[in-house]
Design a protein around this nucleic acid. Structure first.
Length: 811
RNA sequence: GCCGAGGUGGCGGAAUGGCAGACGCGUCGGUCUCAAAAACCGAUGUCCGCAAGGACGUGCGGGUUCGACUCCCGCUCUCGGCACCA
């Protein structure tokens, strides 16, 4: 008797139809001149690696849902897409297949991925597509390099750099994870001394740190990670005179209040003063240690497990606060790249110094007494606050006051000063690779470093795929200044340079005169919503923020932060690993769409779990989602197929459900809670089906419910929603329809539930008019049979608690 | 070690301090069928009970509260990030 006539729709028929119509009508082409409020909806542009998976697609579906909803809400939406198309995987692919050019490989992958995105019904303004490896894009990357150069923010320096032996290129500090290459976590990076280009991001350290406070709509996690990465610390630089030498050793400390506890000094092995101060009898030992430290891998040197090593130089320094003569050692736990490359060692109040002192029998002195507990029994370093002892005139001061007084004293005597240090280091952007934007600099014997004139850009990559340093046709040029033989820089730029400004190119992608149109950038920026993986929490996001600040300072942009709201979606895993073609566990959008169509695939991607959490892919629930869409179709298009099974349909309850769903789904789409949004849509469909099964009439209330369901469904399942909209005979496209408004009057509960407890134990729940008086509530409670039973027939001795929605009776 | 997030049915997961387990998957039962699949209808936290009903239940131990998955304290486990940064 419950047999239902076979009904439904075919995704294969309607999906291509609507994809064609959307493209023809340019549904998501952004109008720069629109009077509507703007909404910049950005997804992180991908590397076109050729293995677009349902994991990537999940991210783009989220962006698409938001774009479609914001459009229906009356906003002018900019939802562009592009390709982070320079980079090593293309070169690796070319090396595997001789004769294959990185560009060919990249273009093929872009074509394939584009087709898959369109097949999922994801709408972008394709007219604004940006491809980082195209000359009309990297021309402007080079232009921006020159801007940085002019502003003194690009410099060349010889320095020990991180070298990935597999990729055969240098890496920025951010690209070294635990001493290993970010692209190959099994490969330890080496240190090399090379002259390379750097961007002076450290000039912006304080602003990058301060402005994090503005980014209230970023995940706390990302802000903390950036804060730690920048790593600000406050302390003092102090000069220690070398006994018998002319030079002083400058150290950096965050604890000037422990200066009296310095019983020795430690210099980094690479410290330039080491050769000068080393006494003859220690020379051999010192040289051997330096040699050993140089050979050590980053991993070894950074290991905190390792026992301390070091060597005495034989030299002594004078502690400026008490004139004490203390030995100078070298040890690899002091890093040349942080602070001044030299420390005063205070073993009493620093764990590392304590360990070192223990091992080499150096004196340990307590100069900070803990607020409680025994004094003078240092069995480990005490690093907490306390009061100064054994510190001459400063005795008795607390840690904080001591810090200030010691600094004052040092500054007065000219032997030290307050200083702020950052962990952040300058951004190394040179790469010894072919597939990137060439650095537009020429080296001339006479004129030195000569930037290529901006009118001469782009410096084109030669067609032939081979290292630029091996390509004389590329590097042999005449000096722009003197006309004599000169040589081009044969390095290319880190691809993170490309990705630091691509979102600005979207505002004027065809501009042939400048990287971006400032007026349009000021119109569209900042990005309202940025969506992408948390793996870029430091690298890409920090670099982009830096770029925006530089462009702001150059007068090209009003904003100082690029991304207002950031969302990091979780990764899609399969068999416990992140999905990818190379790992052999990828599921392509093609495969997903082939099963139940694009709409079901989209809804399923959203329903599989909370968007910010990693999810394990299984398509077990895909059929359930497809069933849900078919059920919606029947309710909307074929309601006669629903068999009436009983009476008691409640039109008021349905109306309330509709209103509540509008609010919940709107909020959830807005805040990226797509999984619960889908659940609420399912609840509404269930309620509507129940209404019909109970013999509900298809009046205007029903029509309203139908319209709301179709509209709310549209962002996540646009093809079927659009088709239903058309069949309902509604005017215009659904894509242009107005978003349903939340009706608080209908959604409001006309009644409240009052909880009745007896002796603190729940006995009944009564439905009451919202404004019912306390007396009425009490009467109703006493009338309830369960409450009576609990009271054993007697009257309550007192009503101990009456609140809006609760009453507690004591027998 | 430090910082951050988390621990809820067979599974994915819901819950402004107010009926824990929404929604879905799976499983079980039913309708249809010669049969199966699909589809549809129903049941489904655990335990006791024929039932009505009752007891117990959100990692562990305390606390606040009329009431705690939710707030506080302590512990534990898992996952992410950072880690000799002076």
């Amino acid at each position: 008797m419950n047999a239902t006539r076979r009904t439904g729709y075919s995704p294969q028929e309607i999906e291509p139809k609507w994809q064609r119509i959307w493209a023809e009508r340019g549904v998501l082409e952004a109008d720069d001149a629109s009077p509507k409020p703007k909404y910049y909806d950005l997804v992180m542009y991908p590397y076109p690696s050729g293995d677009l998976t349902v994991g990537h697609a999940r991210n783009y579906v989220m962006g698409d849902i938001l774009a479609r909803m914001k459009r229906m809400q009356g906003m002018e939406v900019l939802h562009p897409f592009g390709w982070d198309a320079f980079g090593l995987p293309a070169e690796n692919a070319a090396m595997k297949r001789p004769g294959l050019h990185p560009e060919t490989w990249t273009r093929e992958n872009i074509a394939k991925a584009t087709r898959e995105l369109k097949m999922l019904g994801i709408l972008y303004d394709w007219d604004r597509e940006v491809t980082a490896c195209m000359p009309d894009y990297y021309k402007w990357t080079q232009w921006l390099f020159l801007l940085f150069y002019e502003r003194g923010l690009a410099y060349r320096a010889m320095s020990p750099v991180n070298w990935c032996p597999v990729d055969k290129t240098v890496l920025a500090n951010e690209q070294v994870i635990n001493g290993r290459c970010w692209r190959h976590l099994d490969v330890e990076v080496e240190k090399k001394d090379l002259e390379q280009w750097f961007f002076r991001i450290t000039d912006y350290a304080q602003r990058l740190l301060d402005d994090l406070a503005q980014l209230t709509q970023w995940p706390e996690k990302v802000r903390v990670m950036q804060t730690n990465w920048i790593g600000r610390s406050e302390g003092a630089e102090v000069d220690f005179a070398v006994v018998g030498g002319s030079e002083a050793v400058r150290i950096y400390t965050t604890r000037p209040d422990t200066l009296f506890g310095a019983t020795f000094m430690v210099l980094a092995p690479e410290h330039p003063l080491v050769p000068q101060i080393t006494t003859p009898e220690h020379r051999n030992e010192i040289d051997a240690y330096i040699d050993k430290a140089r050979k050590e891998t980053e991993i070894d040197r950074l290991s905190t497990e390792r026992e301390k090593t070091g060597v005495n130089t034989g030299a002594f320094a004078i502690n400026p606060v008490n004139g004490e003569k203390i030995p100078i050692w070298i040890a690899d736990y002091v890093l040349m790249t942080y602070g001044t490359g030299a420390i005063m060692a205070v073993p009493g109040h620093d764990e590392r110094d304590f360990e070192f002192a223990r091992k080499f029998g150096l004196p340990i002195r307590e100069v900070i007494a803990p607020p409680t507990g025994p004094q003078g029994t240092l069995r480990e370093a005490y690093v907490g606050p306390g009061s100064m002892v054994n510190s001459g005139e400063f005795n008795g001061l607390d840690t904080k006051t001591g810090f200030e007084r010691v600094c004052d004293s040092l500054e007065k005597r000219g032997v030290g000063k307050r200083a702020i240090k950052y962990r952040l280091r300058d951004w190394l952007i040179s790469r010894q690779r072919y597939w990137g934007a060439p650095i537009p600099i020429i080296y001339c014997e006479t004129d030195g470093m000569v930037p290529v004139a901006k009118e001469e850009l782009p410096v084109l990559l030669p067609k032939e795929y081979k290292p630029l340093a091996d390509n004389p046709d590329f590097y042999n040029v005449k000096c722009p200044k003197c006309g004599r033989d000169a040589r081009r820089d044969t390095d290319t730029m880190d691809t993170f340079v490309d990705s630091s400004w691509y979102f600005l190119r979207y505002v004027s992608p065809h501009d042939a005169t400048q990287p971006f149109d400032s007026e349009l950038a000021n119109h569209w920026m900042p990005v309202d919503q940025y969506t992408g993986g948390v793996e870029h929490a430091i690298l890409h996001l920090l670099y982009s923020r830096f770029f925006i600040k530089v462009l702001h300072d150059a007068g090209m942009l009003e904003v100082e932060e690029p991304f207002m709201r950031l969302f990091n979606q979780g990764m899609v895993k399969r068999f416990g690993q992140v999905m990818s073609k190379s790992a052999g566990n990828g599921v392509s959008p093609d495969e997903l769409v082939a099963k139940q169509g694009a709409d079901a695939g989209r809804v399923y991607e959203m329903f599989i779990g909370p968007p910010e959490e990693d999810v394990e892919w299984t398509d077990a629930g895909l059929n359930g989602v497809a069933r849900f869409l078919q059920r919606v179709w029947r309710l909307v298009i074929e309601p006669d197929s629903i068999v009436v099974e009983g009476g008691g349909a409640d039109a008021v309850a349905l109306a309330r459900k509709v209103a509540q769903t509008v609010k919940k789904v709107t909020d959830d789409y807005d805040t990226f809670r797509f999984n619960t949004a889908v659940a609420y849509l399912m609840e509404l469909a269930n309620a509507m089906q129940d209404y019909l099964q109970r013999g509900g009439t298809r009046d205007s209330g029903w029509d309203h419910a139908v319209q709301v369901l179709v509209k709310l469904l549209n962002p996540v399942a646009p093809h079927v929603a659009e088709e239903m909209w058309e069949r309902l005979g509604a005017e215009g496209m659904l894509a242009d329809a107005a978003w349903p408004e939340f009706d608080a009057a209908i959604a409001a509960e006309p009644e409240v539930t009052v909880v009745v407890q007896v002796a603190g134990k729940l006995r009944a729940r009564l439905t009451m008019a919202a404004g019912a008086s306390e007396k009425k509530v009490l009467d109703a409670a006493l009338a309830d049979p369960k409450v009576r039973a609990a009271l054993d027939g007697s009257k309550p001795s007192k009503v101990i608690y009456v609140q809006d929605r609760l009453i507690n009776l004591v027998p």
